[in-house]
């Protein structure tokens, strides 16, 4: 009973604190504090509910149990992280984004191909591409190469479509100006059209970060060596050690947020001139 009261009190306290924060003038710390308080409140409620209703640890472990598990099996988590994120997701992300970018620049020279490729690319980007995973695992074996291949296929089309669209973003007046400077194709590309395309390209890159992690993890469900986050999740679910599953999810969430955050930071540096970056 005490824990349920604790959960209710935590919820009320957190909410009141945020209501108070919302009434204050907005500063950078209050816009940071509000979501942090909300997150901590959720954790406290979770802990209180699990303990108060005595929910079986097999069904839903308490946050403290998960934290303890993260501390005790840090080595295991690191090995899984290195296998799935560093080897599988990152290498696939780099190859996929690089290939899509180069092909987009090449396609851009031929308006005919562009008109044909954009609808097809948009269509494929909406397909459940993740279904390719079993095929690619069959082709490239169980190790990280097949995971990287899945990631390549998943990130390829969003980046391709965004880059092709971005390369059309420079307007006619700017292109005319480049022509009056007697700039050739390459110089126009490097100095005008690629910089103008950057907001679009980063949009694709940011979408790609989450897709890359999802692809690498789900591909492991179809076969993997005995290390990796997807492997650990599916086997731990089978053994009902859900605290380990939650620990993996925590690592995945951390990696996903960090990956996204890094891309957003780079975007801020590269496209500082864009209206959406100048508040």
């Amino acid at each position: 009973m005490g824990w349920i009261v604790f959960a209710l009190a935590a919820w009320a306290l957190g909410w009141l604190l945020n209501v108070w924060l919302a009434r204050q003038p907005v500063t950078w710390w209050s816009s940071l504090a509000a979501p942090v308080i909300f997150g901590l409140t959720l954790l406290a409620v979770w802990e209180g509910v699990v303990r108060g209703f005595e929910i079986n640890q097999v069904l839903l472990p308490a946050p403290t149990a998960i934290a303890a598990r993260i501390g005790s099996s840090a080595d295991l988590l690191w090995a899984d992280f290195a296998q799935t994120v560093l080897k599988g997701a990152l290498s696939g992300y780099v190859i996929g984004c690089g290939a899509a970018f180069l092909i987009a620049v090449a396609v851009d020279r031929f308006p005919f191909l562009q008109r044909g490729l954009l609808p097809v690319g948009n269509f494929v980007a909406a397909l459940p591409v993740i279904g390719m995973a079993p095929i690619l695992v069959m082709w490239f074996g169980f190790d990280w190469q097949s995971k990287a291949a899945v990631v390549v296929v998943m990130v390829f089309f969003p980046i391709l479509v965004n880059t092709v669209q971005g390369l059309q973003a420079a307007d006619a007046m700017q292109k005319d100006l480049m022509r009056t400077y007697a700039a050739g194709y390459w110089r126009t590309l490097l100095k005008l059209r690629l910089p103008a395309a950057m907001p679009f390209i980063f949009n694709g890159l940011k979408i790609g970060t989450t897709l890359a992690l999802i692809g690498a993890i789900v591909a492991e469900f179809f076969g993997s060596p005995i290390v990796g986050m997807g492997f650990r999740i599916s086997t731990s679910v089978g053994q009902l050690t859900l605290d380990l599953v939650w620990a993996e999810i925590f690592v995945a969430a951390l990696a996903g947020s960090a990956f996204y955050g890094v891309m957003a930071l780079v975007e801020q540096r590269v496209t500082f001139w864009h209206p959406s970056q100048r508040n």
Partner: peptide, 19 residues
């Protein structure tokens, strides 16, 4: 707006399919 919206965005950086 201040407390939930950031978590809505953060929720998608979690590879949900994994769980």
């Amino acid at each position: 707006d201040m407390s939930v919206m950031p978590w809505v965005i953060a929720s998608q950086t979690i590879p949900i399919l994994a769980i």
